[in-house]
Amino acid sequence: MSAEIKHIHHVGHVVKDMGVALEFYRKLGFVCLIPAYPMMAEKEGEEPKPLGMANTHITFLRNFIEIATVVKDEERIPDNANLVPIQVPPAVLPRVLENIKRTIDTVSRCLARYEGTHILCFYTPDVEASAARFDKCNIGHSGVNAVQRPVETTAGVQIIPIKVLEIDGEDVPEGRLAIADIPPLEILQAQAHMDHPNGAVELVEVILCVADHEIDIFINRYQRYLGRDVRADGLTRIIDLESARITIVPESRLANILPGEAAPTLPGFVGYVVKVRNISATRKYIEGNGLPVMETTVGDIFVPASAGLGTVIVFRQAGRHKF
């Protein structure tokens, strides 16, 4: 099978209140960037205006966690917000706006379902190759779009062009799926704010929970998207990427891998896993900030969804799994 999709690019935690989310993630020990409010002129010559979303990133070397929220027209943008004007050539402006509005509509629908993880983006060094394979496999997608990603480095903010492909035209009830490339390695290595007090170094797993009778449907879908085989791992099904994986678990077995957890509206991404340098130090930091910590049967620790704004956040000792 093809393997041009290499890793997890990012996950997106969609929240109701950005301020509450920032406080929570900082208690977990993550460094959060100042929230960005993308702005764009809807017609050539007009002044840019907010597009209806705000987000921030928790940065690792190769990927990141996005915290996103929907911004209603009547809501006041905070004084310290990072207003990010998006500029595109006039010839492609209508298509870019259409894609942005579709994304905002998708995120709005996700938040209406429940607060939690709803966005999963995969990394590939060749988005065009993924688009060609999708065409061959009759997988609906947006086409390859060029966007600008601001990257905060130790030398200041750099605006880096990246390519993105949305998986759409498909039945994707679990949320928003996409594929993207990443900035050059020298830019990634120069990123600021990667030294997290909890010792987190990388996003390594996303957990998707589905109804028992639909698990084969989702296994087949993700095989088609990723071009990789699925393996059984006890109660779950795993798709291995390079140094990361996607776990698909039936609803009846969720509590076996995450004790005490119940699935949100199905299907849904119930949580994600980050790798840390020292799991004992991570636990001490989180508990010291008053957050509950649970244990899995395989030695990971996690903050339950009831305390995690609708998503389970799992912490894993670096080196414990070899993907």
Score class of each variant (00 low, 15 high):
residue 11 V to S: 05
residue 62 R to N: 08
residue 231 R to I: 14
residue 20 V to S: 08
residue 199 G to W: 02
residue 310 G to M: 06
residue 35 P to Y: 04
residue 89 P to I: 07
residue 188 L to A: 10
residue 92 V to T: 15
residue 257 I to F: 08
residue 2 S to Q: 15
residue 316 R to D: 04
residue 76 R to G: 04
residue 92 V to R: 12
residue 159 I to P: 02
residue 214 E to L: 09
residue 124 T to W: 03
residue 210 V to E: 01
residue 78 P to D: 11
residue 245 R to N: 04
residue 187 I to N: 01
residue 103 T to A: 11
residue 247 T to E: 04
residue 218 F to R: 02
residue 51 L to C: 08
residue 19 G to T: 08
residue 136 K to A: 15
residue 20 V to T: 06
residue 108 S to G: 12
residue 145 N to S: 10
residue 176 R to D: 12
residue 17 D to H: 08
residue 246 I to K: 04
residue 210 V to A: 01
residue 225 Y to F: 15
residue 294 M to D: 10
residue 125 P to H: 11
residue 138 N to D: 15
residue 197 P to A: 10
residue 266 L to P: 03
residue 256 N to Q: 15
residue 141 H to D: 01
residue 320 R to M: 00
residue 42 E to K: 11
residue 156 G to A: 13
residue 46 E to Q: 15
residue 299 G to T: 13
residue 284 K to W: 13
residue 172 V to S: 02
residue 52 G to L: 12
residue 199 G to C: 04
residue 136 K to S: 14
residue 271 G to A: 13
residue 309 L to N: 03
residue 128 E to D: 14
residue 26 R to I: 09
residue 161 P to E: 07
residue 250 P to V: 03
residue 229 D to T: 00
residue 222 Y to R: 03
residue 312 V to Q: 01
residue 139 I to Y: 05
residue 155 A to S: 14
residue 95 R to D: 13
residue 184 P to G: 01
residue 90 P to N: 06
residue 112 A to K: 15
residue 211 A to I: 00
residue 302 F to W: 07
residue 252 S to P: 10
residue 318 A to Q: 12
